[in-house]
Design a binder for these strands. Sequence first.
DNA 1: GACTAACCGAGACGGTACGTCTTGTCTTGGG
DNA 2: CCCAAGACAAGACGTACCGTCTCGGTTAGTC
Lengths: 207, 207, 207, 207
Amino acid sequence: MSDHGHRTPSEAETPATPGRKRSEAARLAILAATRDLIEEHGYEKLSIAGIAARAGVGKDTIYRWWPSKSMVVVDAVLLEDQPFHTAPLARTASVDQDVRDWVHTVTQDYMEPAGASRVRALTAAASEDPATAQMLYGRYTQVQRIALVDRLREAAEAGELRPDADFAAVADAVLASLLYWVTTRRTDLQSGSADPLLDVLLRGLRP
Amino acid sequence: MSDHGHRTPSEAETPATPGRKRSEAARLAILAATRDLIEEHGYEKLSIAGIAARAGVGKDTIYRWWPSKSMVVVDAVLLEDQPFHTAPLARTASVDQDVRDWVHTVTQDYMEPAGASRVRALTAAASEDPATAQMLYGRYTQVQRIALVDRLREAAEAGELRPDADFAAVADAVLASLLYWVTTRRTDLQSGSADPLLDVLLRGLRP
Amino acid sequence: MSDHGHRTPSEAETPATPGRKRSEAARLAILAATRDLIEEHGYEKLSIAGIAARAGVGKDTIYRWWPSKSMVVVDAVLLEDQPFHTAPLARTASVDQDVRDWVHTVTQDYMEPAGASRVRALTAAASEDPATAQMLYGRYTQVQRIALVDRLREAAEAGELRPDADFAAVADAVLASLLYWVTTRRTDLQSGSADPLLDVLLRGLRP
Amino acid sequence: MSDHGHRTPSEAETPATPGRKRSEAARLAILAATRDLIEEHGYEKLSIAGIAARAGVGKDTIYRWWPSKSMVVVDAVLLEDQPFHTAPLARTASVDQDVRDWVHTVTQDYMEPAGASRVRALTAAASEDPATAQMLYGRYTQVQRIALVDRLREAAEAGELRPDADFAAVADAVLASLLYWVTTRRTDLQSGSADPLLDVLLRGLRP
DNA sequence: GACTAACCGAGACGGTACGTCTTGTCTTGGG
DNA sequence: CCCAAGACAAGACGTACCGTCTCGGTTAGTC
């Protein structure tokens, strides 16, 4: 929805700012160029100079609004329309089915080449500096984690699952497994790849 | 035990190789310098030129034997005496206890600063190119995975666990969770951090 | 007077050139550093990296504006205030005396250590690639050659010299002899060293 | 006839030299490879490593017998069967004709591509270090100079030329002009190119 | 309607690291 | 002792980016 920038926008209290406004066209061109270059050549060959050239933009316009290449990548990937599935889980009668359905959807995101290269780009960006990692996990992974934990906790309250289990650890295990499979380039990833793990976890969560 | 090099020596059949032999001293100096620099400044600031200078070695001597910086890092970390715990699990009466003990040991590896920075270096190296990832997961993660899977499978054969569970998926979930916690710099990692997850998994594996 | 660069600026018609202007300070620092290093260590030990370090300049700034080390040297030497004597010959009554005086001056340029090392640097640079040689002989040797030929031709028109002689060949013989003596490091060069040759040549030119 | 080497061979008095004798095959292969590479790629792209590879010889075998690349080049060029014309001048009745004929022959050496590239290689080698220059001019240029000077002096003794002229300066002027034309890559060099200069010089030498 | 500040494109700047090449030395094993 | 092979330390090569810094030129407000 909103990118962050390192110039604190301070939202609604700017008293009087003369001067030209930030160019929305430039911002969008930069993010689009970044996405294109990631898909074409991968994160490792990405350079600020390359993004600027592709976007038809000066390098300073990037440096003015983002503190590092990895932050540009975070914005570029996460500000896409539907980069990854972050919706809450369904609430049908069966927690088992809701969890499986949701994990299938997330897995499918990671299966298609574009999704996989996006995940790998984010992983590489996060491994470059802690600040990016913080930003990334706060804005994406954490959202998924909470979606999953919330549904499990609801089920526990409804008596479907043991109430004393550590749902956060379970959610981490599921999401970490998917990330692990994608980053190690396991090629046989399918929408049901996490099912055997879910079998064990859900059985272990039963009262 | 043995590093790989990209010049395949074709093992035992080279009849007569003229020329000066590879300098063991140089090889060790390079690996030691790499380890030192990773601990001092992190993987991101590592450079071939820096390694060469620190090791008192020409750059060509590195390029002659390793195809990329990431491969040097893999060798440097994994050829240490005891970089990480890769021993098989104990075989006491209780599979639960054996698994917990082993995971505690691995977790402790990742807890100390040196271990954490090694893991992060390996992760960053692996995310740079697929070949390194292949090498890394073949020589390290795979070893741990097999150690864990073997113990679980034995327990299943002994009737302690359900025989139809996917032990590989379970092992991946444990190891991936640890990696995830380390790379996201979760600071509160403790030797028992994986216990809540193990509770659920082991309960789910019971017959 | 003006250095050349390999980016043809197309002189006076560039309508609008965006971007930061070329730094005159950097240009001068590079040329000064080049001159200093030639005098200190000779042309053979000259390196682009060394010039850049001495001038406090990035290597790219050199590569951006000059195509090769030898071209830098040509500019560095020839853009000095008074690198060598290139003025026209005097026009007194006696062509003999005018030629002798002028040759004495040129010889003196080559006698002092700085002049000799400059000549040797130019010679070495010219022997490295044809383009540099072309540039060098067009901008320096040719100027001297014309100065000498012009005076001889005037004398011929005044009836002092045979009109059918090849003055260019005579000028070449004088200048080539001087270059030859300098580059072969004949140590006994004196301002009158060319006089015996001039005796023969001028006598041969008389009507 | 004999190359020089930097290990003084001390000729006939070696009391008892154990060990393998110097390989004549290696020496010839090195010189031939050097000549080939000069003709193919020019002096500037010549490297010791390249010569060794082409000659099927170890680099040390070159370093053991020659102190520098330029010395190898001097030997390689000058030890050819007929690299350049160094014979004495003819002694017919006319010194004019003898000089012209001899200069024509020398000029023709320099006209053919192989000869020109040899001259340029020698010039470049000589400009690299004084020792090579010394060696080169002692073994080649000096020979030609003396040949020319001797014929002129004989003519002076026979009363054909002024006895008080500086024949050495005249010889230098002729040879230096030729070198100058070749190294500046004057393309229109012909066997009679020096004739206009000789006209003036010989007229100036007449009693 | 001019001022004026901030933004924009372009691109030069001082640097750092890259991966390759060459130099001259050293080591190995065979002749 | 010589030789072919080739590893070694050193360091220059020319390229690619980094993040910073001018340049004009272009928008917006505010006087």
